[in-house]
Computed example of a mutant assay.
Amino acid sequence: MATSQNEFKIQKTDQEWKESLTPEQFQVLRKHGTERPHTSPLNKEYGEGTYVCAACGTPVFTSTTKFDSGTGWPSFYQPIEEGIDTTVDRSFFMTRVEVHCKNCGGHLGHVFNDGPAPTGKRYCINGVSLKFDQQ
């Protein structure tokens, strides 16, 4: 688990991030925001390909691990391990496991223990934090 923004390979100032991201992407990826459910077109994307971090292009999930969780956010049961890291998130009076990009630290979403086999995990990811590279 990463513990500090200083541990990430890609380092930018807030201003640099603002110049390369949309306002919504900046709010989610850099300020740990959450997009409204059912607003991302990626929630209904089921083509073959790879989901990458919208901030830096790091591959984080594959289409073969995507499933419809009914939550309104793109959900996956397994990440590309070299692409993500996790930290404990104690915001909003609860403890959750935050998922972020291993290379830039961008906030992707959270992981829960109510997903399908084979992992039992549900990586609930903000669509705005992803880009889809279709094969």
Results as ranks from 00 to 15, higher is better:
T34L: 08
T34P: 05
E35S: 05
E35R: 01
R36C: 08
R36W: 10
P37G: 07
P37A: 07
H38D: 12
H38P: 07
T39S: 12
T39K: 06
S40Q: 07
S40D: 08
S40P: 07
S40L: 07
P41Q: 13
L42C: 09
L42Y: 09
N43R: 12
Y46T: 08
E48I: 10
E48W: 09
G49L: 00
G49H: 03
T50R: 04
Y51I: 02
C53E: 01
C53S: 03
A54S: 02
A54T: 00
A55L: 01
A55N: 02
C56F: 05
C56Y: 04
G57P: 04
T58Y: 04
P59N: 06
V60F: 04
V60G: 00
F61Q: 05
S63D: 02
T64V: 14
T64S: 12
T64C: 09
T65Q: 02
T65I: 06
T65K: 03
F67D: 04
F67I: 14
D68H: 11
D68M: 10
S69L: 12
S69C: 12
G70I: 13
G70M: 10
T71H: 12
G72F: 03
W73I: 04
W73P: 05
P74T: 05
S75R: 10
S75H: 13
S75C: 15
F76P: 02
F76Q: 01
Y77F: 15
I80N: 00
E81C: 13
E81I: 14
G83N: 03
I84T: 04
T86K: 05
T87V: 12
D89V: 10
D89Q: 09
S91H: 11
S91V: 13
S91P: 09
F93R: 14
T95H: 06
R96I: 11
R96Y: 08
V97F: 05
E98K: 03
V99R: 02
V99H: 02
V99Q: 03
K102R: 14
C104Y: 01
C104I: 06
G105V: 02
G106C: 06
H107I: 04
L108Q: 03
G109Q: 05
G109H: 05
H110V: 14
H110A: 11
V111A: 08
N113S: 15
P116D: 07
A117F: 13
P118L: 11
P118H: 12
T119Y: 08
G120W: 06
G120T: 13
G120F: 06
K121E: 12
R122L: 10
R122I: 13
I125H: 01
G127E: 00
G127M: 01
V128Q: 00
V128L: 03
